Structure formats: C-alpha cells, structure tokens
Simulated scan of single mutants.
Amino acid sequence: MSGQELESGSKVRTIRSVEDGLKYDQYVDYNSLENALKMFAKNDPDVVTLHELPPHTSENRSILAVELRSDRQSRKAGILIIGGLDAMAWGAPNAILELSHKLLYDASYQTPFFNDYDWYLIPMANPDGIAFTQSLRSRQPVEPMMWLKNDTVRSVTRPREWHKNVDKEPGQAPCFGTHINRNFAYHWQDDVRKTPQKCSQYFPGSKPFSTAEAKAIRYYVDKLGTYIDLAIHLHVSLVPRKEYILYPWRYSLRQPSNYRTLQEIGEYAARKSRLADGRLYEVHQSSSDERVAGTLSDYVSGVVGIDLVFLLRPYHQMFPNYTDTDVLSTYVKKSISTVLSVVRGWRRNTKQNTLSFFGTDVEF
C-alpha cells in the first residue's frame, strides 16, 4: 500500500498500513531488541528517543527505555509500559516491540494512540534473567532447589522455573538470583514474617533496590514523575485459563482510594479484549489472590504517585517451544489488545475523545 502523509504534532510523517502478522516472529534476545530499538531511533529521530539506563546489570547489560513522542515541543498524557521483569516472560519484550512498531508505522494505530499520547516503554527489564532461561531451554527440567544445590545436575539440566535475575551476592553460593519484582522499596517484606531463603525463587534481595534492574527502573520512573498518567506492568500468567487485569495494592488488602475507577477501567478493558475462547480476564485488586510486597506496581503507585496502575497477565507457557510462532503470536496479540483496551477504558472514563450527540457520549 502506498505511503500516505499524516500530521503528527509538529512533524509530518510517512505512514502505511501494516500486515496483521508479527514483524518480530521469534522470541527476541537482548541483542535483537537493542538492534531494533536503535533502528527505530535512527529512522525516526524526531519522535523516538532511546535511553540506556544506569546502572549496568551483573552481566553488563543496560536496561533499555524507548520513548515515542509525536511532538517534542509539548507534553501529552504519558503511558508507561514495563515488561520482561520476570525471567519467564519471554514474550513480553516481543509484545512491547511489536506495539512500538505499530504505533510508529501502522496507519490504524496513529490516531488516537500515537498522536494523543507520549509512550515510555521498557521492553526487557530483566535481560540477564531472560538470557539465562533462554540459554537453558533445550535441557531437561528439574526442581530449582535441586538444580541450584547439585553441580552434577546443574551441568545437564535446567530449573523447572526461574523468575529471578542472575545476581550473585556475597555468601550466596551455590544460590544466586533475586526476584526483581520483590525488590522495590515500598512495604518491602511486609507480606512475610521471615525473608525467603536465598535459593528461593522469591528471594527479595538483601535490601530494597539491591538489584541493578530495580535501581534502573527507579531512576527512570522517578525522573519521569508527573509526565506519567497511566502505568502498565506487562507480566504473564503461567496457569492456563487464568488471565488477569489487576491493580494495587499487592502488599495489602486495603483498597486504594480510586479502586472504583481502576475496577471500571479494568472491566471495560476485559470486555474489549475478550479472549479467543469467549472468556474475560479476571479483574480485581492484586492482593485478592495473594499478598506480595516490594512490587513494581505498588512502588509506581505508592511512591511515584501514579494513580492509574495496572498489572496485566495474559497466559504464557513456561519454557514455550522456541520455534512455535503460533504460541508467541497468541501472547503478543493478546498483550497488545489488552494494553490498548486499558488505554481505551481510561479514555472513556475521563471522557477523552468523546463527543456528545443529543445527550449520548460517542467515542471516536
């Protein structure tokens, strides 16, 4: 289809309709992600900014953040999306990369999604952990505790699940790794009487922000501050037919002051992103299932002060077949649909992009 010109803020951009298939049809690794984001920034420097967030991870990688802003001269409502924080969330970087590509180059996503918002995206918040799990994917699985404590077993197998990074703290051997989504300084460890042992998949670190990954995210979101109006942690559900749209708090059963708004937006998004088999996402406060302290979503809400924070958990297989593009495509499409449905729900709730005709609000 021939290109067409569209006014986007202060810059006229060439856009096109993009086929429905995946642009990135394999699970992206860190190098592939970095190359793709650098290409975005090179091709469209007026609307794309790429940041390497300090500090480096234990394996010397940078957490990459990409900003998509149609008009650098003004600030629009900001949307923050962070994915790939869990080492099992292989598809989350793909989903955010695919969404970025559509926002930049697909005519059907330009209005209102690209033109009306500033997008702040961290596709792979745990690059070491994802690289680690992907590197072991062809081995036979064993229980993580057995894998950690038996050198012979470790040489030929992989842990059945791994949710952490690969940090090695002093005195931690043979155990290593910290669960980044337990490492943020908001009610850290309020959910347990005793800190999980270092071999546990839920080890929260020796103190809040002991991980480079959590520090990098804190550096970025604290700096953005009031520019963010909506924050989304794109996570995974590893249980079939259990998929969620959740909101704070995770550490406590106490309801946030705006829980009705969060519930309404979540329910709207669930209806608009109905799953292929007809089910709806379950929508409720995160702690209704399990209390978890020190999480990203609670930190963004409780410390950074963003009112609208959601945790999205589409189903994702544990150690999925690396060559099965249908599995990857299903997760990516569900993720993008759900993210954009949350944005639509927010817009509808605040009466953005609506006109009133004879007393009836019509969204456009």
Rank of each mutant, 00 (worst) to 15 (best):
M1Q: 10
G3N: 11
Q4D: 11
S8L: 15
R13I: 12
L22Q: 08
L22P: 11
V28I: 15
Y30Q: 02
L37G: 00
F40P: 04
A41E: 11
D44T: 15
D44C: 14
H51Y: 12
E59S: 13
V66G: 00
V66K: 04
V66D: 05
E67L: 03
L68N: 02
D71G: 08
D71C: 08
R72V: 10
R72P: 07
S74C: 10
R75L: 06
G83N: 06
L85E: 11
A89P: 00
G91P: 02
P93L: 05
N94H: 11
I96M: 06
L104K: 00
D106E: 10
S108G: 01
D116F: 02
I122A: 02
I122F: 05
P127H: 06
P127E: 01
D128M: 02
G129K: 01
F132H: 07
R137F: 10
P141K: 01
W147N: 02
T152K: 12
V153M: 13
V153L: 15
V156A: 13
R158E: 10
K164M: 10
N165M: 10
D167G: 10
G177T: 09
T178A: 04
N183P: 06
V192D: 15
V192F: 13
V192E: 15
R193S: 15
T195P: 07
P196Y: 12
P196M: 13
Q197K: 12
C199F: 00
Y202H: 10
F209L: 15
A214Q: 09
K215D: 13
K215I: 14
Y220K: 09
V221Q: 04
V221L: 01
G225L: 03
I228W: 05
L234F: 09
L238D: 13
R241M: 12
Y244E: 03
R250D: 09
L253D: 07
P256C: 07
N258V: 05
N258S: 01
T261W: 00
T261H: 07
L262P: 11
Q263A: 14
G266T: 03
Y268E: 07
R271P: 07
K272A: 13
K272V: 11
S273D: 15
G278L: 02
L280P: 02
H284D: 14
S286F: 03
D289E: 11
R291I: 00
G294D: 07
T295P: 04
Y299D: 01
Y299F: 00
V300R: 00
G302M: 04
L308C: 15
L308P: 08
V309F: 06
F319D: 03
P320A: 04
T325W: 11
V327P: 02
L340W: 03
L340N: 08
S341H: 11
S341F: 10
W346Q: 04
N349K: 14
S356N: 10
F358K: 11
